[in-house]
Nucleic acid binder design. Structure first.
Lengths: 219, 219
DNA sequence: ATAAAAGTTTAGGTTTGTCTAAATTTTGTT
DNA sequence: AACAAAATTTAGACAAACCTAAACTTTTAT
C-alpha cells in the first residue's frame, strides 16, 4: 500500500502532467505540494524505485502505467466523496475540497464501490470534473473554455477547473454555478476580458484568467 | 491538532480505562496498540507534555479532561461512520470496524455534525455501542451482560462488546444479532456456560467468554 | 560561446513514531 | 525483608518525510 504522502505526489504529478500528457518539473511539484524542491527530489527517487514514475534526473518526471492507475483511483475517490458531501450532507461546492483531500486516502475497495452505487454512479463531481470509472476510464464530454466563446455565443456552465474556495466563492458572488446560462455580450480587446450575461439576467465582466477556468457546453 | 498516532493512543487509554474509571498500564496499551512498551512510554511522555494525560512514571496513565474530550470526539466519529456504513452503504456489522478506524481521523467539525444530522442523530452504532453527543455525553441505557441472566430469564440483545470480525462472524453463524430474543434454558456449572434459546427457535451453548460480551435489555 | 541565472540534486539535519537492548523500578514470594 | 520476576523506562538506532545550504546541471542572454 502507498502512504498518504506518496499518493499526494502521484496525484499532483497526474494533474500537472495533464493526465500524463507531458513531463513535470521538480519545481512545479514543489509548488503544487507546498514543499521544497529538495524534498521532491527525494520522493521522486523513492517513487521511481517503486516503478510508479519514470524519472530522469534534471529532466522531470512522468507517471508509469502503474502510477497512472494509482492516480485515477485516488481521483475517483476524491470526486465521489465530493459528490457525497454536496448531495447528501449539503456541503457547498467551496467547502468540499479540503475534506475530500482527507477522505480520498481511506483504503477500502468495498467502500469506494458501495459509495459509487449509493450515489448512483455519478459522472461528474460538484465542480463538473469527470469521475474516473472503476476501470480507470474518464468519460469525456465535449466542452469549451469560456475564453474561447465569440461575441454573441452562448453556453451552459458544465465545469470549473479550480476548486480553491476563494475562486468558487468568487463565482458564488458573481452568480455563476454549474448549469448557469451564459452569453458573451462583448469582448474587451485590451485584456481579453469578456462581458458576460448570466441567466439572461445579470451582466458582469470576467477577466481572461477567470474565463479560462470556466467550461461550457452548447445550450 | 493531534496526529493519528496520538488519537489512537488516547482512544486506547479511554477504552482500557473503562471511560476514565481507572488507570492504564504501559503493557496493556502496548498490547492494545500492537506496539512495544518502550514506544508507549515515549508517547505517554509526549501526551503528558500536551496535558492530554496524567502520567506518573511506573504508575500508569489516565486521561485528563482534555484527553477525555478528545477521546469522545474520536469515538463519536468512529461510531457515526459505522452507522453510515451499515445503514447507507449496506456494510455488514463485521465489515465496518476497520474502515471506521480510518474515517475517524478525518478532521472536520462540519462533517461530523452534518453526518450526525444525515443519519438522524443515531444513539447507538451497529454493535449497540452508544454514540457520544456533540457535548461529550454518553447516553446510558440500562443493560445487563448475558452472563448475569439466571435460568429461565429472557432478554433482547442490545449490544455486543467486541467489534472484531471473528467474533461478529461467530455471532452471525450462531444467529445472534442486535434485537434477538434470548432465553436462558440452563446453566452449566462446570464452566459457567449457558444454554440459550435464540428467537424461540434455535438453541445453542455459549461460553462464559462470549456471554460476557453480549448485553441485553428486558424484553 | 560563455557566463549568469534558474532549476535540480546531494549532503547533512530534524521530527515523529517506531524498535531493541540495557537499566531501573515495582511486585510478589518465601 | 530480601531477592527473583515482571513491568517499565532510558539509551541509542532507524525509516519516512521533511528541511537548509551547498554543489551541480541546464537554460538563457549576451
Amino acid at each position: 500500500m502507498h502512504s498518504t504522502a506518496e499518493e499526494n505526489y502521484i496525484k499532483a504529478i497526474y494533474k500537472l502532467s495533464g493526465g500524463g500528457a507531458h513531463g513535470v518539473s521538480t519545481n512545479a511539484l514543489a509548488d503544487a505540494l507546498d514543499t521544497k524542491p529538495a524534498s521532491v527530489s527525494d520522493m521522486l527517487r523513492k517513487l521511481s524505485a517503486k516503478d510508479l514514475v519514470h524519472y530522469v534526473k534534471y529532466r522531470g518526471v512522468q507517471l508509469t502505467d502503474d502510477g497512472r492507475r494509482v492516480a485515477l483511483r485516488i481521483i475517483r475517490k476524491h470526486r465521489l466523496w465530493e459528490v457525497f458531501l454536496v448531495q447528501k450532507l449539503n456541503f457547498a461546492w467551496d467547502e468540499v475540497h479540503e475534506v475530500a483531500e482527507q477522505m480520498e486516502h481511506v483504503k477500502s475497495e468495498l467502500l469506494v464501490n458501495r459509495l459509487d452505487t449509493f450515489l448512483n454512479h455519478p459522472r461528474v463531481d460538484p465542480h463538473g470534473d469527470p469521475i474516473p470509472t472503476e476501470n480507470g476510464e474518464i468519460p469525456q464530454v465535449e466542452q469549451k473554455a469560456l475564453s474561447a466563446l465569440e461575441v454573441e455565443q452562448t453556453g451552459i456552465v458544465c465545469r470549473v477547473k479550480d476548486s480553491q474556495p476563494a475562486f468558487l466563492q468568487y463565482l458564488n458572488r458573481v452568480g455563476i454555478q454549474i448549469g448557469s446560462h451564459l452569453q458573451v455580450l462583448d469582448k474587451i480587446a485590451y485584456d481579453n476580458s469578456l462581458e458576460i450575461n448570466i441567466n439572461r439576467n445579470k451582466t458582469v465582466i470576467l477577466s481572461s484568467d477567470v474565463l479560462s477556468k470556466i467550461f461550457v457546453i452548447k445550450p
